[in-house]
Each structure stands twice: as C-alpha cells, then as structure tokens.
C-alpha cells in the first residue's frame, strides 16, 4: 500500500538527512571554517582568487607592464579607472609613443567585477589579496597604481 510505503520512504529520507548533518556535527571541531579574524591577522591568508583591490605589480627595476592602451578604462562599468597619458619620445626608437603618466584607480567606486583585469592585454593589473581596505577619509581610496618614476618594461608591446 502506498500509504505505508510513503511513511517508510519519509522516515528513511529523514534519517538519511539526519545522518548527513550528524556527520557534520561530529567533524565540526576539526572542520570549522570560521576565521578568528582580528586574532589571526598575522597568519590569515586570503585565497588565490579573492578580489581585494586592483594593483599594478612592478619588478625590481621599477618597471610595469602597462602600455596605456586604456582598455581597462573603457571596460570599467562605473568609471573607477582613469588613465592620464601623454605622447612622449621613446628613447630607443626616437618616435613619439603613448605612455601613461598616472593610472588612477578609485577603490571607493570599484565593485570588484574584474572586467578591467580581463580586458588588460598585457596583464599589467592584477587582483591583490589584501582585505583591510577601510580608511578614515575617502580621498585615501583614490590610488595611483603606477609608482613614480616607473616605466614600461621592455618587450611588453611586441
């Protein structure tokens, strides 16, 4: 009879569910995923794909990979990126060339969508894993990503 069959099936599925949560309960002490945040500030490491803020890595010669193509600026849906550039004479070839002056990034407007990083053809900008981004004044959220006196790494444009 399906009436008693239903009861049997109901009890069986309920017990299955309880066994699943029971297993979690038993292993809870070892598997706790909670971070004791302010206490473990020193050791807490964010995972690889965490989106903290956009940074532009520089190598030891103070060289970055940004060509100033402005693809990130165009890709950004809410105008968090502003690139100030001008044409300067390249020392090697003697030709006029587009170079960035300041890569301005407004962290306060950024929604961490990652479209700028996807758009970048030279992987000049990346996600950083820092997570303590609160400041006392919002002007501190406007950041210049390229360091002063930095220049384009040779061979990026080829």
């Amino acid at each position: 009879m399906s009436y008693f069959g239903d009861i049997y099936k109901g009890i069986k599925t309920l017990l299955t569910g309880m066994s699943v949560t029971g297993k979690y309960f038993i292993t809870a002490r070892k598997g706790a995923i909670t971070q004791q945040y302010p206490d473990n500030r020193e050791t807490l490491k964010m995972f690889e794909r965490f989106r903290g803020e956009v940074v532009m890595p520089h190598d030891e010669n103070n060289e970055h990979r940004c060509t100033g193509c402005q693809k990130c600026e165009i890709a950004c849906p809410n105008g968090s990126i502003e690139i100030i550039w001008d044409r300067q004479i390249d020392e090697e070839t003697g030709k006029k060339k587009k170079m960035i002056d300041q890569h301005i990034y407004h962290l306060g407007m950024c929604t961490m969508c990652g479209l700028c990083i996807e758009a970048c053809p030279t992987d000049a900008i990346l996600w950083a894993q820092n997570y303590e981004n609160s400041v006392y004044d919002r002007s501190q959220l406007t950041k210049v990503l390229n360091q002063s006196g930095s220049k384009l790494k040779a061979g990026v444009e080829d």
Binding site: Y24, I33, T34
Partner: peptide, 10 residues
C-alpha cells in the same frame, strides 16, 4: 553552539 557545530562554525 549546536547550530554552529552543525554548520561547521565555532
């Protein structure tokens, strides 16, 4: 506490 342990929290 029990809720936390069921949900792998502290």
């Amino acid at each position: 506490k029990v809720a936390a342990w069921f949900q792998l929290r502290i």
